[in-house]
Design a protein around this nucleic acid. Sequence first.
DNA 1: CGGAGTTTTGACCTATCTCAAATGTTGTGG
DNA 2: CCACAACATTTGAGATAGGTCAAAACTCCG
Lengths: 246, 246
Amino acid sequence: MDSYSPFVHRIKKLELLDSDDFAYAESLIKSEIIVDAGRFIIDAGNLQKQIFFVLSGWAVKYKTLENGNRQIVNFVLPGDIIGMFSPIFQYSEHTVESISTMKLGCFPADQLVSTFRDAPRLALVLAWMAGQDERILEEQIVRIGRRRSAKRMAHLLIELYRRLRICGYTREQAIILPVNQLLLSDALGLSHIHTHRVFRELENHQLVERLPGRLILQNLAMLSALADFDESYLEPTSLRKASLAL
Amino acid sequence: MDSYSPFVHRIKKLELLDSDDFAYAESLIKSEIIVDAGRFIIDAGNLQKQIFFVLSGWAVKYKTLENGNRQIVNFVLPGDIIGMFSPIFQYSEHTVESISTMKLGCFPADQLVSTFRDAPRLALVLAWMAGQDERILEEQIVRIGRRRSAKRMAHLLIELYRRLRICGYTREQAIILPVNQLLLSDALGLSHIHTHRVFRELENHQLVERLPGRLILQNLAMLSALADFDESYLEPTSLRKASLAL
DNA sequence: CGGAGTTTTGACCTATCTCAAATGTTGTGG
DNA sequence: CCACAACATTTGAGATAGGTCAAAACTCCG
């Protein structure tokens, strides 16, 4: 299945899986579905029966507050897995909602455990992906807790760019994202109005540009410098193999 | 070993492990160490050879910025595991530093994988703990991104109380924590001066109290109401068993 | 007693928020 | 192909939460 390329890109740098592993992985996928923008893929408080591999498209993972505000916890991009912990928890704490058309590979949540038993190398890769997710959450905490709005925004945009990059997207100095200012503000913990002003500032410095429905990073070098971006937390070769008896 | 009680408390509600499992778990611990306050347990950028079970004492997990500021990502309490992902990653992205004397149970990072193979129920519990960690990180993002200082602080304090509670601590309406204002401010993403003002405000309303080196929650009900605290993300019985073939 | 770390204070500054309204944009049905 | 609704962006003005600076006071140890 060619559409698995984001995963292939992401994983091949680990130099861990052979073609048998890939075959096994593909056999796990029982079906693929197409989802429109604006659909709930995981809904907070619900039992989740599927795990989804994101083959294409974007989503956001967020929590909604008592007062209706929301905070986006992370973006979900091609090559990510949605609901990896769902076999373990009775219900989800957050909501995952598509922000573009998506193609998802599904497999039943109750087979994750057997995968861990039967395909240890594959399990290891899944655990590594969960660990990367956790690193990204931690960086989001730092970003929101200790960076001022302009750096905060620049930092997030670069993270998204790098993550797409790793999965084989964004050839040129560009990210193409269906992200509007509301989404950005909910991810950054800012009001949408301030988000707009900050974004405008980046635009005025020719760092970013915006076309209808998409967002381009024009000057990645300057943006990275502005954001003090240190990519180590996204390192696609960070898997530790030496100590693993496989 | 009696000192494992925080883990026993935390896990027994899952009603998953039998005494064999517990015996196996204890056999994994090769040694215990005592660590003073102010020591690095995990240092960012280093290879990590051990996984630690926190038997007593407190630590903070944080990242340091270019400008020297830091952001605490999570508190580490008895019943938590430090470095669960270390067998998987070459080096750590964050630092874990003790903030009180701690007792830690150690086991070699390279045995985690074999544990997953040989003790599936145990592995499941570990995965559940990793999932809880992730939920807590997500809540920290929401707290910092979308709550104003007073609610933010109240929310964090209650989280800490609840987490201790689950592990068998804090009988009375009280938390006892070696947390000073600097630590709090680095966890909340506030300046230490503002943290002081906010804390004082809570004190004036008789919600919290402070004795040298420790911090007491006096009126948990009002504090919870103020913080809009919803404990579901800490639910100690959230494990999903039905679909697990074990 | 001295020094390091922590807490407290006050004054002032500014980043960010809120409110409210105008302006654009996009997709839909007639 | 227009008109309208729904949604997204933009603007300005005024309010405020929270930051910064600098210094004093307190606490804890050795």
